[in-house]
C-alpha cells in the first residue's frame, strides 16, 4: 500500500496546480482516478477488500493534507468508500477493522457474524465500478438537476441578488430565463478578485437584465430584492456554508430585510465536517490583490488582510436547492448518513 503514496501525491499535486478550474472539475478528476485505482487493484481474496478500503482511506488522508480547502474532493473519497462498504456488507464480507466504532446499541450485543469466504469477486468489482460510474454521472448532471427546479423558485418581475461567480447559479438563472420568466439580477462584484464581473458578462450575454453593483451597496439595495441566490464551495454538516468572502455580509443584509437566501449546490459538496468559526477552514490571498507595496517607513505599522472564505452559519439560509430537490438545513444530517459511512467521517481514525 505504501508504494502507492508517491503516486497519490503526484496526482493530488497536479490537482492543486490546476486549482483555478473550479472544484467540480477537481471532483470529476478524483472520481476518475479512484475508478482506475479500483480497476487495477488486485482483488484475489475477500481479505483484499479491507486493504482496498484502507488504500482509499489513505488517499483521502493525503488529499485532505494536500488540499485542505477542497473539501468536496475528500467528500468524493468518502462517497467511494461508502460504495465499497455497502457492497461488501451486502455480500457478507468481513471489513471490520479492530478499532471500529460501534454505532448502534444493538451492536454491543450482536453475536459475532459468520462471514462468507467464498464470494464472486469479479461481480463485486463490477458492481463497485458501476456505482462509481453512477457517481461520476451524478457529478456531471447535478447542475442540470438543480437548474430544472428554477421555474418553481423564480417568478416574473423578480429582483434577484447574487454575489461573485457561481456556475451553478448561472445555470439556474439561465434555466429560469429559458422557461420565459422575466426577472432582473443584481450582481455583487466581489472585490478584490472581481468574479462578479465575469458573472455579469455571462448573464448579459444570455439576455438577462443584469445590474453590476459594488460590494458596499448590497445593504442599500437589499430593500428592493426579492431573493438572494448564492452558490457555495462546501456545505457543512450543520447546514453552514463555506463560501467566498463577502457572502456573510450579503446574508446578514438579507436577514435584516427579511429576504430569503437560497443556496444552490450539488450534494457532493455536503461534508460531514463541522466548522464553527471563520478560522477552521480558511486561507489568505496575496495582499498584492488589494494594495501596492507600502513605503519602507510604513511597513511596520500596516497589515494587509485578504481572507478568501467566509463561514456562514445555517440560521441565515432559508433553503438549499440540491440535485435531489430543495432541502431544509434541519434535514441535512439525514442526507449525510445516506451518502457516507460513519466510519469515514474521520479518515484519520
Amino acid at each position: 500500500m505504501e508504494h502507492l503514496i508517491p503516486n497519490f501525491k503526484d496526482f493530488l499535486r497536479s490537482l492543486k496546480r490546476g486549482n483555478n478550474t473550479g472544484n467540480h472539475e477537481l471532483c470529476c478528476r478524483t472520481c476518475k482516478f479512484l475508478l482506475s485505482l479500483i480497476k487495477q487493484f488486485r482483488l484475489n481474496s475477500v481479505h483484499d477488500v479491507p486493504i482496498l478500503i484502507s488504500t482509499i482511506s489513505l488517499f483521502g488522508q493525503l488529499s485532505s493534507d494536500i488540499l485542505p480547502l477542497e473539501i468536496s474532493v475528500v467528500n468524493i473519497v468518502r462517497r467511494v468508500l461508502h460504495i465499497i462498504r455497502e457492497e461488501a456488507e451486502h455480500r457478507n464480507i468481513d471489513i471490520s477493522s479492530e478499532n471500529q466504532r460501534i454505532t448502534t446499541l444493538t451492536g454491543f450485543f450482536r453475536e459475532s457474524e459468520t462471514y462468507s469466504s467464498t464470494v464472486d469477486l469479479i461481480d463485486l468489482r463490477e458492481t463497485i465500478k458501476t456505482e462509481v460510474k453512477n457517481l461520476m454521472e451524478e457529478l456531471e448532471t447535478h447542475k442540470h438537476n438543480i437548474s430544472d427546479q428554477a421555474s418553481t423558485h423564480i417568478f416574473s418581475n423578480e429582483i434577484i441578488m447574487t454575489y461573485g461567480y457561481s456556475s451553478t447559479v448561472l445555470e439556474f438563472l439561465c434555466s429560469a430565463k429559458s422557461v420565459g420568466r422575466n426577472f432582473e439580477v443584481l450582481v455583487g462584484e466581489s472585490a478584490p478578485l472581481l468574479t462578479g464581473h465575469q458573472m455579469c458578462k455571462e448573464l448579459a450575454a444570455k439576455n438577462i437584465a443584469t445590474t453590476l453593483i459594488t460590494d458596499s451597496a448590497v445593504y442599500a439595495l437589499m430593500s428592493r430584492v426579492n431573493k438572494v441566490i448564492i452558490g457555495t464551495r462546501a456545505l457543512m454538516a450543520n447546514g453552514g456554508l463555506l463560501t467566498e468572502a463577502g457572502k456573510y455580509g450579503v446574508c446578514l443584509a438579507a436577514q435584516a430585510h427579511c429576504v430569503p437566501v437560497l443556496v444552490t449546490c450539488g450534494l457532493f459538496k455536503l461534508s460531514p465536517l463541522y466548522p464553527f468559526d471563520q478560522d477552521t477552514f480558511n486561507e489568505f490571498l496575496s495582499p498584492n490583490t488589494i494594495a501596492d507595496r507600502p513605503e519602507s517607513h510604513e511597513v511596520e505599522f500596516i497589515n494587509y488582510s485578504v481572507p478568501a472564505f467566509d463561514y456562514i452559519p445555517p440560521e441565515l439560509i432559508s433553503l438549499y436547492i440540491t440535485d435531489v430537490g430543495g432541502k431544509m438545513c434541519s434535514y441535512l444530517y439525514r442526507l449525510l448518513s445516506e451518502y457516507y459511512s460513519i466510519e469515514d467521517y474521520n479518515l484519520y481514525s
Binding site: 468572502a245 463577502g246 471563520q278 488589494i290 500596516i302 488582510s305
Partner: peptide, 22 residues
C-alpha cells in the same frame, strides 16, 4: 494618515469585514 501617526493598522476590504468583526 494613521500610519503617519504611528498607529498600527490592518487594511481590509468591505467583503472581509465579517472575518475581522469578532
Amino acid at each position: 494618515a494613521l500610519v503617519k501617526a504611528k498607529i498600527h493598522c490592518t487594511y481590509i476590504l468591505i467583503s472581509n469585514v465579517s472575518y475581522h468583526m469578532p
